[in-house]
């Protein structure tokens, strides 16, 4: 190390720093893509290595690597499709998962219906639900609520106006709630829970 807390910007320094971040990077990649998470991480590592000299503090390595990974993913999405995927996802304005649970009452003997509903999902179920969402909604949702990026940072990363990101987060949350309910029904999660 050349200074306290700062590794030399060498290949060895890079290796030492990124190996500890591999699980977090791979997990983020799996929330962003259905297939090809490993390739996405490799491409991000390659770009990070080239830009290693720009990393100011070792302590910021995790966020720095995630940012590079999101940039790589954003560019891949853009290359794949020149147009933003704004497929109609049905009318979401009236959907409320909170009310749906109250109305449908999937666990009649539960004292904590809403909490119990969320507990039927394991991490793979949640990933399945996220992957169903179009990229434009999934990416801000994952970055904001799972990886802790601020909305302004997300707007900068995705090169979109803040208002656009806020609108996509809003629609993405509604869509996510609707898909959670649909997935729970399709995958039989509510029946299993009821039979306990």
């Amino acid at each position: 190390m050349s200074e306290a807390g700062i590794r030399d910007r060498t290949k060895e320094g890079f290796q030492e720093l990124v190996l500890a971040e591999l699980p977090a990077l791979y997990s983020l990649a799996r929330r962003l893509v259905r297939d090809g998470a490993e390739d996405l991480v490799q491409e991000a590592l390659l770009q990070a290595f080239r830009a290693f000299g720009t990393l100011r503090e070792d302590g910021a390595a995790g966020r720095w690597l995630k940012t590079i990974l999101v940039n790589v993913f954003r560019d891949q999405v853009r290359k794949r499709s020149r147009t933003v995927d704004e497929r109609p996802m049905g009318d979401l304005s009236d959907f409320s998962l909170y009310r749906t649970l109250v109305d449908e009452d999937p666990f009649p003997y539960s004292d904590s219906l809403h909490t119990d509903f969320l507990q039927v999902f394991d991490s793979e179920d949640l990933r399945e639900v996220l992957i169903r969402l179009p990229d434009i909604y999934r990416i801000p949702l994952v970055l904001r609520y799972m990886d802790g990026f601020a909305t302004k940072e997300i707007a900068r990363l995705l090169e979109a106006p803040l208002g656009t990101i806020l609108a996509r987060l809003h629609r993405g949350r509604r869509l996510f709630e609707r898909e959670l309910w649909a997935y729970a029904e399709e995958a039989g999660l509510l029946t299993k829970e009821r039979a306990r």
């Binding site: 591999l22 977090a24 997990s27 490993e38 590592l45 991490s123």
Partner: peptide
């Protein structure tokens, strides 16, 4: 609750064979 559910569902699991391949890639 939903926000807490999302924030705590970020399991950082990586299959051993993927981890090994990525480590070799970094090397």
């Amino acid at each position: 609750e939903m926000r807490a559910f999302l924030a705590t569902s970020t399991a950082q699991e990586i299959p051993p064979h993927v981890k090994e391949r990525l480590e070799r890639f970094v090397e």
